[in-house]
Design a protein around this nucleic acid. Sequence first.
DNA 1: CTTGAAAGTCCTCATTT
DNA 2: AAATGAGGACTTTCAAG
Lengths: 183, 183
Amino acid sequence: MKKTDGILHHKGEAHTADPMDRKLLGQLVGDATLSYAELGQRVGLSAPAAHERVKRLRQRGAIKSVSTLIDPASVEKSLLAFVHVDTTGWGKTPTLLAISQYPEVEEIHSVAGDACMLLKVRTNGTQALEHLLAQLYATPGVKATRSYVVLSTYLERPVQAETTQEWPVIDFTRQQADAKNLL
Amino acid sequence: MKKTDGILHHKGEAHTADPMDRKLLGQLVGDATLSYAELGQRVGLSAPAAHERVKRLRQRGAIKSVSTLIDPASVEKSLLAFVHVDTTGWGKTPTLLAISQYPEVEEIHSVAGDACMLLKVRTNGTQALEHLLAQLYATPGVKATRSYVVLSTYLERPVQAETTQEWPVIDFTRQQADAKNLL
DNA sequence: CTTGAAAGTCCTCATTT
DNA sequence: AAATGAGGACTTTCAAG
């Protein structure tokens, strides 16, 4: 091993992708069917080089899976809802996690705020949602739920590789000046 | 054009996938890198037959895209949050939709309930979230926001092809009987 | 990391049931 | 609508610079 050739010299810390890796990930998130030839061309790399980097990204776990994104309507899941779940005690309840068995449940998070758990569920109509809620209420420790039914979705996409680098710098000095002027 | 080769002969109605299509979609959601040979084998079809059906699923729009799912940590998006946005008037505000420009914003829905809009955002830390919220507040018509910061994620997956067929039948008769016994 | 080439696999077509 | 079999295109992957 002559040079530092870049695999886990950083003692177990979570690897963050370098700029070239991000370009690769960005392309692959947009279209995972790209050949390594075209992928490499888009980011300015040869096919073997692109392949090598992608292979490493897979090994590191940066690439979790390659999935087909389907239209919910085609599988009769017209109703999308976010469900806030209040639990007694601490929501570590493994019983609650059992609802991940239902393919209608897409996300389960524990959140800070006035809800303990947050679920994203997609069902075939309101009746199926009701049954899901019934399951929740039947779960020990579930105190209450609040459902937010989605009327229309304007954007829904997987985790993007891009990051906003330069957030607008808020000029507090100026704002304070403005505030003084308002007094 | 000899035969009906399958583009929109069904007058615009929303196609729902038949059982075989659902099996195909189920496999492809789990792993989009399957060859048609293996895909067909898993669902009990030959490779060309599988290909034919998948091609039709693409044409119908049942398959929206094939995407690489990446680990948020690898691209420095450690913070996940759901943001409820209250808007004055009706939240049709195209101005609000402009925030879809930020790759940190993954979902935008209009919802029923006490929030008008619901956002799913994934940022690099709290400061980036703050900047995003600042953008929201700078948007005309945005009255208030409530953020639910995710502490840990137990489940997060794309739209599943499977549907729970037989929801537990709630025996209200029995429950009413039980209720009477409790009186 | 790039170029070039070989090996392997997959897609796709036509034919048949 | 689906299965079989063969042709051809493509990709992956190795080697060398």
